[in-house]
């Protein structure tokens, strides 16, 4: 009996850990954000800077928010995968299994069979990106509209691509740039352009959504002041047209665009990693090496 109570207590703690970071950053924003009027499109605010030998390291809103998202996803995963059983699966076990099956299916459909263990990485990219973009539903700064965060992810993907291209040795890697020998500079440029375009695509989509939302909110405030400004007292100053209308745009820009960009980032990661990997040459090389070893 006491074990069951303890079990529920751990569930409660995990759920609290999932919600607490979001509440914490909301409170932090309310306490530190300066009041603003009119059109303000700002980057991430800097909370404080840590002095470092080469350059001071600023701790920004984007970093704090993405850490909060990390803690939320981590505790949600722990909560979903507790008390798994083969005989009596619970509701959350079904949910966890559904997520894992979907991600494995995605990897299986889009990648080489060599990458069959890539599911967790793709799932973590999807979850992190989607949850980060959805933070703007709470009125918080979405970390994905900061180029530094998304650029970090793109560099990570670039390192992965290069690692799997190196699987056949450095000579094969160098040769892959000289496919038509005259186009070597172009090939090098397009290799470097991969992470840049991935980062810009994700960041530009989320940022343009927030810029358009701010413009629309400001425009609606002006329009309602023009139309309903004759009302007495504070009713005249109150922007009535701002109620409800920006929500329609928010559904597209925050929910749809955020989820779509997460999906596209994961899809492009899978395509680039799997497309850069020389599968046939790798199999040939491995069989040749194993034959040489046997001799």
């Amino acid at each position: 009996m006491s074990f069951k109570k303890f079990d529920k207590f751990i569930d409660f703690i995990l759920l609290t850990l999932a919600i607490a970071p979001i509440v914490f950053i909301i409170i932090l924003q309310v306490l530190t954000k300066p009041e603003s009027t009119g059109i303000t499109v700002e980057g991430a605010r800097i909370y404080f800077t840590i002095p470092m030998p080469i350059q001071p390291l600023p701790i920004t809103e984007a970093q704090v928010n993405s850490l909060a998202v990390l803690i939320t996803i981590f505790s949600l995963c722990l909560y979903l995968t507790r008390n798994m059983s083969v005989k009596k699966p619970t509701k959350r076990q079904h949910l966890a299994e559904w997520i894992v099956e979907k991600c494995d299916g995605l990897v299986k459909n889009n990648m080489d069979p060599y990458f069959k263990n890539f599911g967790p990485f793709i799932a973590s990219i999807l979850g992190l990106s989607a949850f980060s973009s959805l933070l703007s539903l709470f009125g918080l700064f979405p970390p994905t509209s900061d180029i530094n965060i998304v650029g970090g992810w793109a560099i990570l993907v670039f390192i992965l691509i290069t690692y799997y291209k190196f699987k056949c040795g450095p000579i094969h890697y160098a040769k892959s740039f000289c496919d038509p020998p005259l186009l070597t500079p172009l090939n090098i440029i397009s290799e470097i352009a991969t992470p840049i375009s991935m980062a810009f695509r994700h960041y530009g989509n989320i940022l343009s959504g927030s810029v358009i939302s701010v413009l629309l909110a400001t425009g609606l405030a002006g329009l309602s002041n023009l139309l309903l400004g004759w009302l007495p007292g504070f009713l005249g100053d109150f922007p009535f047209l701002r109620i409800g209308i920006p929500a329609v745009l928010s559904i597209y820009f925050d929910v749809f665009s955020g989820a779509l960009q997460a999906f596209i980032f994961a899809m492009l990661t899978m395509m680039y990693v799997s497309g850069g990997f020389p599968a046939e040459d790798f199999v040939a090389r491995r069989s040749r090496l194993s034959k040489a070893n046997k001799k």
């Binding site: 375009s197 810009f200 695509r201 960041y203 530009g204 989509n205 940022l207 343009s208 779509l260 960009q261 596209i264």
Partner: peptide
């Protein structure tokens, strides 16, 4: 569509 959007997003940046 998302890939075709990239050039527009470069202009936006």
């Amino acid at each position: 569509c998302a890939i075709a959007e990239t050039t527009g997003l470069y202009a936006l940046v």
